[in-house]
């Protein structure tokens, strides 16, 4: 099939690319834009490792196709920190609370938790578990992740 020209804003930068329609958004981010922070875990919409924000809403980028994002604005883990090096309170809290081990599910967790904190600045542990229920982590057993989100809520949410 013919390639399709798209224009997307990713982390504030506009990219114009030609891609085959079957390319998933996550493959586009990783392979076409070299934004490898977003990870591929299952490619069938279950594990949440590929979570990014599409027009401000966290979604699974393995079951959205890049052509569908034409004209949209996307935030990946690389775009959470405004300058790419100063940690947001949430990123800082994940480090502080040891809310990660291998780091593979972490980008998806951070995107999902960022969205939660925007909506609910002071979530309960249950609300955090609800919001992150679609992000599977095999390292942590989740407890230190929940603690990290709670710490971030205390130290400044997503600022």
């Amino acid at each position: 099939m013919n390639d399709y020209a798209i224009s997307v804003i990713v982390n504030g930068v506009t990219y114009e690319r030609r891609i085959p329609p079957r390319r998933s958004l996550v493959d586009f981010l990783r392979d076409d834009l070299a934004l490898t922070g977003t990870h591929v875990g299952c490619e069938h919409g279950i594990c949440g490792a590929c979570t990014v924000m599409l027009d401000g809403v966290p979604i699974r980028s393995c079951i959205v196709y890049a052509v569908q994002a034409d004209g949209a604005s996307i935030t990946t883990v690389e775009g959470l920190s405004p300058d790419g090096s100063t940690l947001t309170p949430l990123q800082d809290a994940f480090v502080e609370c040891h809310g990660l081990q291998c780091g593979f599910c972490t980008p998806g967790m951070l995107i999902a938790a960022t969205a939660l904190l925007r909506e609910k600045p002071d979530p309960s542990a249950d609300e955090i578990r609800d919001e992150l229920g679609g992000n599977i982590c095999r390292c942590t057993g989740y407890q230190q992740i929940v603690e990290a989100v709670q710490l971030a809520a205390r130290t400044g949410g997503t600022r």
Binding site: R22, G45, R60, C62, I63, Y65, V67, Q68
Partner: peptide
Amino acid sequence: GQSLGPLLNMRLVRPALLVDVN
């Protein structure tokens, strides 16, 4: 696409054309 996406990725659904109604 939350049901269709996995089916597409696993090639269990093989359309010639995807009509995006979004």
